[in-house]
Design a protein around this nucleic acid. Sequence first.
DNA 1: GTGGTCTAGACCACT
DNA 2: GTGGTCTAGACCACG
Lengths: 131, 131, 131, 131
Amino acid sequence: MPIEFDNNLPIYLQIMQYIKRQIVTGTLKAGDKIPSVRELAAELQINPNTIQRTFQELEREEVVETKRGLGRYVTSEEWKIMQIKKEMAGELLERFLTGMQELGIKEQDIVSIVTDALAEGSQGKGEHTHE
Amino acid sequence: MPIEFDNNLPIYLQIMQYIKRQIVTGTLKAGDKIPSVRELAAELQINPNTIQRTFQELEREEVVETKRGLGRYVTSEEWKIMQIKKEMAGELLERFLTGMQELGIKEQDIVSIVTDALAEGSQGKGEHTHE
Amino acid sequence: MPIEFDNNLPIYLQIMQYIKRQIVTGTLKAGDKIPSVRELAAELQINPNTIQRTFQELEREEVVETKRGLGRYVTSEEWKIMQIKKEMAGELLERFLTGMQELGIKEQDIVSIVTDALAEGSQGKGEHTHE
Amino acid sequence: MPIEFDNNLPIYLQIMQYIKRQIVTGTLKAGDKIPSVRELAAELQINPNTIQRTFQELEREEVVETKRGLGRYVTSEEWKIMQIKKEMAGELLERFLTGMQELGIKEQDIVSIVTDALAEGSQGKGEHTHE
DNA sequence: GTGGTCTAGACCACT
DNA sequence: GTGGTCTAGACCACG
């Protein structure tokens, strides 16, 4: 299941997010083995160099760890995963709030915009009550 | 008052956002003349070509219109400005919500995260209740 | 009745075409007096310098002639007007045909495209027989 | 085979047309790789920045797509190419017909002018009936 | 190797 | 004065 790539963002970052998302949502669990560079490269139809870089970055962030000769594994420290999740959520929140405030939107309006959007979205797709 | 530039994003995009923000928040109003390429270049200490590019993009988005030999002006169509504001807010919201959902965060939690952050933030600034 | 200006083309050229069109279609006849720079500038809301340039060019093309102290007049030589009309039509035709051939459209198709477009256009606007 | 440049039109636009023509006439096919900025710059003896701009515009029109680090490719969507061809032909036609009508030329005359011009032109090239 | 951005400095046409 | 284009040369990130 290859990813849809957005040409604006570097591919290696997109794959990073893809893997982090899998970890954070539990698709990949703490201590799990992750695919080898070659495997993932073949699966995603991507140059192995790019995958290599992805893993380097993930290691720098201590999300994955290499066991020499055995392969790469998701970090086994659960708290680390939680921390990553919080960081990612924090960044999203930060960007959203500062953005909205730069647009001069009032705090109360921000809340209602969010709730409205969620209310709308949680109804079925293509089944609007009033367009 | 020169802008703080973030090295990750192209300068011309940052200036674009800066100007769009001014328009959307009313600092620049519909029909106002905007600074000439050379003026803004001098003020921001940026090469005129870069400013030129900024303005070209703004024009393509119909945020700004050129009157030959006279200079550039904020679009005189108020509705266009409102539309832009909505677009910008919509994008922010979209990115935020899809991001949070990809992290596997439940809708109700999203709302409380937002309200909490706003509650915190509005105290903050020089008026700590408990640090 | 001010003209709608297209920002891509120099204003003075647009006014030139405007006047030539009037001459060629008989709205302005051979020998007619044409408005003064100041008049036309006021009427079209345009900088007099621009009008001045328009007239200079028209004079260079011998479409109008200046009588010192009296004003400017459409050339009194009818054949000249016919010639201009032919030139303008010729240019249009030339640009059209070379353009179509560069697109690789066959000659027979060009004819049918033109006849079709005219047939369509000559019916009432907004009253298509089959969309 | 360098292009002949017309000094009135910006070079980057002329190269755009040149490439679009190649695509529309099938010289460049859907999905084909197009020359790199540096290659084309060298071949046409043009500054790479100018070529860069050409390609940016083509991309904005979705005629061409960039694959990061790999190069640029003609859009792989055939229908897109057909659409572009129709647009280009439509613009030519539009400009021609409105121009002729502004000159006060009757519809029937327009058709005969076109057919005559084509008849003339198609003899010419090496096959004169009577010179 | 690819494209993307930026600077510096120049020339031009338009109003 | 205004914007628009072009050149020359440089640096960077990506694959």
